[in-house]
Design a protein around this nucleic acid. Structure first.
Lengths: 106, 106
DNA sequence: TGAACATATGAATAAATGTTCATATGTTAA
DNA sequence: TTAACATATGAACATTTATTCATATGTTCA
């Protein structure tokens, strides 16, 4: 153990690179279409078309946004025949959304 | 108590308006300058100029972004003479950032 | 009141981003 | 292999957004 004063109040500033990644992550949550997609697949995995129908949006739009979610490891992908099923990656994602909701709804 | 099956897995989709607000909130976290500002003032309140100096950015840039943070109730403001001191509004904000960091650093 | 300082704000510009259309890729079943 | 279906992707366009410059507003002190 280092001889160092620790303080729970203190929040060390991460490296710039980490801060960019962090901002990029929140950017993903900063679009209502992606938020709606995440809610839509939060209970059950769903195919791209089902998501598009549920949200009444174009398949292409959903597909583009799913790619963003994929790239940021926020969704899991599973192929079954012609369809590709998407689901939320982990509970982390739900928790981030819940924290945001708490703030919005307060 | 209502006679209704509850399920902790189930996440009800909020109204569209709430979803837009939620996306708007995350949008605020989705910029590295604002993230850096939030880290900078997470321990102590700071004046606008101090923040600008700490981040080596223009006073105007910081002021513009502080307004965004203000409008979204993420910072507290206190005037003392010529200076205006900003601090994080509540621990909520820190928690949202921490959740994001967890995801980024994993 | 006027000078000096701190902060806020409007306009302009450049860059990033979401959606659409058209089409490519990949899969299944006949 | 071909037709039909599901998904992905590139280009184009419109919109949003972050930063900068110039300047306005607000505060203190002489």
């Amino acid at each position: 153990m280092e001889n160092k004063i620790t303080n729970s109040q203190h929040t060390e500033m991460p490296d710039l690179e980490v801060l960019f990644d962090l901002a990029d992550l929140f950017k993903v949550f900063g679009d209502s279409t992606r938020i709606r997609i995440m809610f839509t697949i939060s209970d059950n995995e769903m195919s791209v078309l089902s998501i598009a129908e549920a949200l009444n949006m174009e398949q292409s739009t959903i597909s583009h946004q799913l790619r963003v979610l994929r790239q940021n490891k926020l969704v899991r992908v599973r192929r079954e025949g012609k369809q590709i099923y998407y689901s939320l990656d982990d509970d982390h994602v739900k928790k981030i959304i819940e924290m945001g909701l708490d703030h919005v709804l307060e």
